[in-house]
């Protein structure tokens, strides 16, 4: 039974450099901070970081799964608060969970939580789905 306050099951996605390259190609965002460690360090980043929109896309998959398909996702928003840091040769987690915030007119609003290595990476993350 889903009601306001219900906490949805957590899901963990894993990101590595190969996924960042695949997202760069799929999205057209070839900014070197997402692929080239030397360049990322030169602009003051701790390492290569994931595209914020890749993080948002993965959390979007969590939302689509809950909604029973992408066609039922009506609204989706997020603030990029901290980067997901992806060192070479590692798989880093993106851990996603959600709480039901509102149920009205055949729609469910979710408040989402996304962390990587224990750090919250998205803020103000919300979705409205038809369900």
């Amino acid at each position: 039974m889903i009601e306001v306050g219900t906490v949805l099951e957590e899901k963990v996605f894993y990101l590595d450099r190969a996924l960042l390259k695949a997202y760069a190609d799929a999205s057209g965002d070839q900014n070197p901070i997402h692929q080239n460690e030397e360049f990322a360090l030169s602009v003051g980043l701790p390492n290569v970081i994931a595209h914020g929109m890749l993080t948002m896309a993965l959390v979007g998959k969590y939302v689509s799964d809950f909604a029973g398909g992408s066609a039922n996702v009506l609204e989706y928003s997020a603030r990029f608060t901290k980067p997901v840091i992806v060192p070479a040769g590692e798989k880093v987690d993106l851990t996603v969970s959600a709480t039901v915030a509102e149920i009205a007119d055949g729609k469910i609003s979710l408040t989402l939580n996304a962390t990587s290595a224990g750090v919250k990476v998205l803020g103000m993350t919300k979705a409205v789905v038809r369900k």
């Binding site: 996924l19 799929a26 689509s64 996702v73």
Partner: peptide, 17 residues
């Protein structure tokens, strides 16, 4: 290509982002 990155198997419509 976009679906493959996020593990979406339904490719009949575009993912939300």
């Amino acid at each position: 290509a976009f679906c493959a990155v996020i593990g979406e198997t339904d490719t009949t419509i575009a993912p939300p982002t």
